[in-house]
Amino acid sequence: MTKTITIDGNAIPFEDGQTIMDAATAAGVYIPHLCHHPEYTPHGSCKLCTVRVNGRVCSACTFPAAEGQDVLNNTKDLNDDRQKITQMLFVEGNHFCPSCEKTGNCQLQAVAYYLNMLDDHFPHFYAHREMDASHHDVLIDHNRCIFCTLCVRASQQKDGKDVFAISGRGINKHLIVNSKSGQLKDTDLEASDQAAHICPTGAILIKRTGYTVPIGERIYDHKQIDEVSLASEAEDHG
């Protein structure tokens, strides 16, 4: 007999070893997420995937599915909390979408649209963050990093390299690269690496590719992130 959990009242099958996120995605149920990617070990840092499991607040991307779980996901309260979390991500960094090459194709922006986020609510930090344009093909704009560690994981788990890491804590947390000079050009990163393409924001960009897709044809111009995400991730979770 298949084991099931319920999400928002619907029975969702799961197999042992799956997280709530795995089971939900395989069944076509979208749980908002930014630091989660089906091909990599969960990190559980962005908290966008916060759900209630039998009343308790948990991260769906790290919490194992188990018999008897009654999960709340798409509720007003949870989406309000997710919107506040997203607003915090926006004010901690410097997100000027009109001048960002990722706009229209950015998961952070798309999650904010999905949550109908119309303002940033909190006061802005306007923290001074640098850019690293030293690499021939790849640019890092630290203003837009949300410390999801997807580039760290992709470099280690897919590319067999160790180009990125997160250093420091709290407000001083920042992305670092593995080279003596501290510059991206002196690492072994190549533009074809998975780590150069996985960033859910405009923090890691491939040079000379910006604005090639016209407004109206970008990923999230007409499709919401739930649809886009389920279409690309449902198989990985199968």
């Binding site: 926006f90 000027f96 009109p98 303002d119 940033d120 802005h124 306007y126 001074h128």
Partner: peptide, 15 residues
């Protein structure tokens, strides 16, 4: 608009 909401492009002088 963006500038009223988050400072927008003029706020890029903040750095």
């Amino acid at each position: 608009g963006a500038c009223a909401i988050n400072g927008g492009l003029p706020a890029m002088r903040n750095f």
